[in-house]
Nucleic acid binder design. Structure first.
Length: 694
RNA sequence: GGACGAUUAGCUCAGCGGCAGAGCAUUGCAUUCACAUUGCAAGGGUCAGAGGUUCGAAUCCUCUAUCGUCCACCA
């Protein structure tokens, strides 16, 4: 049978890809329940759920390409493969997007009220929340869409409530007035991991605190000078601290100073946290508005004066003349006042970094607030043990250190957020919602039916095998999935963690949408095709090393696709017209082969072994280089040229067998073109490459 | 401040004790041939620098320089 009629000379990805994806979806093979029965076990990956507000970037593209390679490879090996997709409700991010949209209509969420506002968010989610998953499909991901999960689905919400209750009943959840990072624009607390630090020019102010005479005996000094970048917070000071080893202040420890403006008597304390080198070596202590100071305050039992409120305005405690002022206004007034009293010794230019909200970019203030916390000591132990024992392995291994370092000094987890979009904290009289990461932490098992312990999927597909993600959420997400998995299911949620390369610009800078340095994978797919885009990504992703993005490798991928296409045209023009039944197994080695035939078949076997080993070890770039080299330089340049002068049935059979095998080996990397060619193999109309035996 | 990584051809990167490699780019030749999105060939490198280990170092060790990422923190 002659299939050449279906082949154009150049390969056209646009004509092929959509059609092939549809074919896969119709086959049902993305769903493990429809796969042919084998005696192999299950193989599961959970897709890191992109935010519903997200749009595809290069990191996503690389990450899904990696996961798809693994899933397709394992599926061809006969495993019952499941790749669960889904999206994350992304509390603060999504609420901000919808609020911005409302603002254009001149509305605020407060005008709408909680219920109406949430309706708007759901509308927005239904309309835009699935865009990114559609983009994943263009890349060719073979996720089981029938099992797609959203983190606020009914069952998922049940899981979140159950998890909260579990911790609560164990006494691991408590409410406390603690100093937290507060974003006054978003009106919510933020975790350390939700902060970004920005360098900012400011001033370092040197303020004199007079030693109060009546309590001082034998003091030679009349005042102590402290240095601060935030003079307004002096209104909430409850001590001055020096390093106990600092000779300069030895005699002053325990003495009393008079806090300017407030005329409050506070004492000079000694604490190791104070660095002798900073400023004058004496610092003011404001337990309400600084994390270090809060720690010192607790240790020395200092009173807490909350002088800044949740809206970023000064409180009553700041003093009646400052009450209601913005922080910056108050700073000016305080400086004025200090000058008036002649207590401002000097000011110096100073560059320091300030915390910003990573969602909205607003300035973050540390302030005391009533929040819910999860105790971390027991949970951290679980997560540490899982990795130290080797039950969970990181690839590349060096990321293990990042994970363990963070867990070894982790603080209790503040899980409440003062926003509306999210899972409500299930306690009467509390309007807070939970940290988005509280629900994401349950992802590997909540997607499989937990808390229903009889869930068929949970039994069959949990624990999962591989998690592939970006390095910046190792602590935010990976560690929390590990202890959640162990705590709620008694099992590690996955055994291997792949930390994929970070894609930087050619200059080695971070790709950023706002700076316009980002590259949209979708334009690459339109220009070169999905297979070529996957090729370019994987080609460059060697050993988890950061990638300085070079588009020419995607162009090379397109050329390679075309090469494969023309190899196939040639081989099928020689073999496709024959009714000869080719041997498509290693039985071929029993034929009366020429040296050239035998040589290329041996090289094929080596290639197959080497590619399998590289995929098993997550060296995807290496595997692709090996395949590329074999297909182009051994098969096409040498063997095909040889075959033009040899028309033996053995050579025809070898040509066919190599094409046949190479399509299988390349399929995980370049699924569309290989499936399309596969369809055109003789007597092969109804078989699909996606489930062929590796 | 701490940790980690990088430095190899014009560019993007492999190689990680035994003759310096790939893709792209460059140059020459070929061309009714599956493919010009091609083939054959060529040019191009003090492997960041210094010292050490070794019969032998791009590769292992120490230091230095430059660049980058992450974490902490800057009162």
């Amino acid at each position: 049978m002659n299939n050449l009629g279906k082949f154009n000379k150049p390969y056209n990805s646009q004509e092929v890809e959509e059609k092939i994806y549809k074919l896969w979806e119709e086959s049902g093979f993305f769903n493990p329940d429809n796969l042919p029965k084998t005696n192999k076990g299950s193989f599961t990956i959970v897709l890191p759920p992109p935010n519903v507000t997200g749009s595809l970037h290069m990191g996503h593209a690389l990450n899904v390409a990696i996961q798809d390679i693994l899933i397709r490879y394992k599926r061809m090996q006969g495993y019952k493969t499941l790749w669960i997709p889904g999206t994350d409700h992304a509390g603060i991010a999504t609420q901000n997007v919808v609020e911005k949209q409302l603002k254009k209509e001149g509305l605020s969420r407060h005008q709408l009220g909680r219920e109406k506002f949430l309706e708007k968010v759901w509308e927005w989610k239904e309309k835009y929340g699935g865009i990114i998953l559609g983009q994943f499909k263009k890349i060719g991901v073979s996720c089981d869409w029938s099992r797609a999960v959203f983190t606020m689905d009914e069952n998922y919400s049940k899981a979140v409530q159950e998890a909260f209750k579990h911790y609560y009943d164990k006494g691991w959840i408590y409410q406390g007035e603690r100093i937290v990072n507060w974003c006054s624009r978003c009106g919510t607390s933020l975790s350390d991991l939700e902060l970004e630090y920005v360098e900012k020019k400011g001033k370092l102010y040197y303020i004199k605190y007079l030693i109060s005479k009546q309590k001082t005996v034998n003091s030679k000094q009349e005042y102590i000078t402290v240095a601060t970048t935030r003079p307004e917070t002096m209104l909430g000071d409850s001590a001055v601290a020096v390093n106990p080893k600092d000779e300069r202040y030895k005699d002053l420890i325990g003495q009393i100073v008079l806090l300017p403006i407030q005329n409050r008597e506070i004492s000079i304390i000694a604490d190791d946290l104070v660095e002798k080198e900073f400023g004058t070596g004496a610092v003011k202590v404001t337990p309400a508005h600084d994390f270090n100071d809060a720690q010192m305050g607790e240790k020395h039992n200092l009173p807490v004066y909350k002088i800044i409120d949740e809206k970023g305005k000064m409180t009553e405690l700041a003093g009646s003349i400052y009450k209601g002022l913005k922080i910056s206004e108050c700073r000016g007034k305080v400086i004025e006042k200090l000058k008036e009293f002649n207590l401002l010794e000097k000011e110096e230019d100073y560059i320091h970094s300030v915390a910003k909200c990573y969602r909205c970019g607003g300035t973050v203030e540390p302030l005391p607030s009533l929040q819910w916390f999860v105790k971390m000591n027991e949970l951290a132990k679980l997560a540490i043990e899982a990795v130290e024992s080797g039950k969970i392995k990181f690839y590349p291994e060096r990321w293990k250190k990042v994970y363990l370092d963070w867990l070894s000094k982790v603080k209790d987890w503040c899980i409440s957020r003062q926003i509306w979009w999210g899972h409500k904290i299930p306690i009467e009289g509390v309007d807070d919602v939970m940290d988005t990461w509280f629900s994401s932490a349950l992802w590997p098992f909540a997607t499989l039916g937990w808390p229903d312990k009889n869930s068929k999927d949970l039994k069959e597909f949990y624990p999962t095998q591989v998690l592939s993600t970006a390095r910046d959420i190792i602590n935010l997400w990976v560690s929390r999935m590990v202890f959640s998995g162990l705590e709620f299911t008694g099992k590690i949620p996955f055994s291997d963690v792949i930390i994929h390369a970070t894609i930087l610009t050619k200059e080695g800078k971070r790709m950023s949408k706002s700076l316009g340095t980002g590259i949209d994978p979708m334009t690459l797919i339109e220009k070169y095709g999905a297979d070529a885009t996957r090729f370019g990504l994987i080609w460059q992703a060697m050993g988890g090393q950061d990638i300085h993005w070079a588009e020419e490798h995607v162009a090379a991928g397109k050329k390679f696709a075309n090469k494969l296409w023309n190899i196939s045209r040639f081989v099928l023009s020689r073999t496709g017209i024959s009714n000869f039944q080719f041997i498509i197994s290693n039985e071929i080695l029993n034929l009366n082969l020429s040296n050239e035939d035998r040589e290329i078949l041996e090289k094929l076997e080596q290639t197959k072994k080497s590619v399998s080993k590289d995929i098993d070890e997550y060296n995807f770039g290496q595997a692709l280089h090996t395949l590329y080299d074999f297909i182009w330089h051994d098969f096409a340049d040498k063997y095909i040229e040889y075959s033009k002068n040899s028309s033996s049935t053995e050579t025809l059979n070898t040509l066919y067998f190599i094409l046949y095998t190479v399509l299988k080996l390349l399929h995980p990397f370049m699924p569309f073109i290989t499936e399309e060619i596969w369809k055109n193999l003789p007597n092969n109309e109804n078989k699909m490459l996606i489930i062929e035996k590796w």
